[in-house]
Every structure is written in C-alpha cells, then in structure tokens.
Nucleic acid binder design. Structure first.
Length: 191
DNA sequence: TGCCCGATTAACT
DNA sequence: GTTAATCGGGCAA
C-alpha cells in the first residue's frame, strides 16, 4: 500500500519539493494519477504571482505550506499549485501534467476527449479533468478530497525552462519525468 | 474608473 | 506557426 504524503513534505525549499513531486500520485475525489510535470515559483522570482507581495488572489501562497493555491488563467482555465516552504515565503509548485491512472471514464467525460494523452497534459487540462476550481483554493493537501501518495519506484527527473512566461524565461525550474508521454511539451534533450 | 495583459488551450493556416 | 477566446488582477490616473 503506498504511503500517504503528510503536510511536512511541503515544508522544504520549493526547489527540493518540485522534483520530488514527480512520480507522486495525486487524486482529487479519487480521480487523478501520477504527477509527471511541475514548475517551481518563488517569491523572489519575477514570474511568480507572489513577487509583488500579498493580494487577495495570491493570499494562500503567503500562508503555511501544504495547501492548494488555485488561480484563473487567461480568464478561462484553472491552474493548481502546492504551497511550499515556511509560511510567508510565498513559494509554490504549479502542477502541469499528470499521467492518468484513476477515474479515466469520468475524466474523458469532463474533457470531452477519448485520447488519454490529452486528458491531463497541461495545467488547465488537468484541473478540468479533476474538476479543480477556485472552490478548492486554500484546501489542505493531506485531507480529502485531496489525496497524495509517495512514489513507489524511482523516477528519472529532468529539468528545463518554464513554459508560457515573459519574465525570468531562462530559469530551469520546470521538472518532469524523463521520457513521459504525458508531458504538456517535451523537454529539450541536453545538447 | 480604465486599460493592459497573462504560470492556457484549441482551432485554425 | 498563428490566433481567438475570455475576464479578473494589478496598476496608472
């Protein structure tokens, strides 16, 4: 039986937590799968929502670690982050892609798609498949409806630049499972 | 109050 | 490769 992650998993540097999340199983109401792609954001990072200080929207990022920060992207999609480090450090990991393992029929229905590779391969896509919205903003990650299970086998993690940014575009703070078919975009192989 | 624009996605050419 | 969709946050005035 896989081991559940506790909230203390997140009470570390966001740059340790982010790669450690690859291979972790994330379920929401029993639906989800293995995390295969994430990005790290830190309050000193110009691309982070917390960079300019606390606001109504990013308040959860300034709270204690182990909670979900959900925001609206482009007025259309929802994206979910896991808050890390000590309260007030305002750092978080954006969950960008999941390899679906649990609840495939309901995810297909919500997404209106049959192709398993497109169900959760992107931050907006996975929130639609798991039905995560702003109603989940601020929820604890170690309590239902969230469930997190430690990885059961080793995974090979690769890093690269984050996606879709106009600031701090070169920081290599995107992490993913090497060779996964469920990434939102492939990682460029080292030259 | 007004204006610009984004941690995206899908549907184009 | 390019672009529309769509709207709240954040900042200037």
């Amino acid at each position: 039986m896989p081991k559940r992650l506790t909230r203390s998993f997140f009470n570390r540097s966001v740059h340790e937590v982010a790669p450690d999340l690859i291979g972790v199983t994330l379920l929401f109401d029993g639906v989800g799968g293995r995390v295969v792609e994430v990005e790290a954001y830190h309050h000193t990072d110009p691309a982070a929502h917390s960079f300019r200080g606390p606001t109504d929207r990013n308040a959860v990022m300034f709270g204690p670690p182990g909670y979900a920060y959900v925001y609206r992207s482009y007025g259309i999609h929802w994206c979910v982050n896991f808050v890390c480090e000590a309260a007030g450090s305002a750092s978080a990991v954006l969950i960008r892609a999941i390899e679906p393992t649990q609840g495939l029929p309901v995810m297909r229905r919500r997404r209106g798609l049959a192709d398993v590779r497109l169900l959760c391969s992107g931050p907006g896509r996975l929130c639609e498949a798991l039905r995560i919205t702003d109603k989940q903003n601020g929820l604890a990650l170690d309590r239902p409806p969230f469930e997190l299970f430690a990885r059961e086998r080793a995974v090979e993690v690769v890093a690269g630049p984050r996606i879709g940014l106009t600031k701090a575009v070169d920081l290599p703070w995107r992490y993913g499972e090497k060779g996964s078919r469920f990434l939102s975009k492939p990682f460029r192989p080292p030259t």
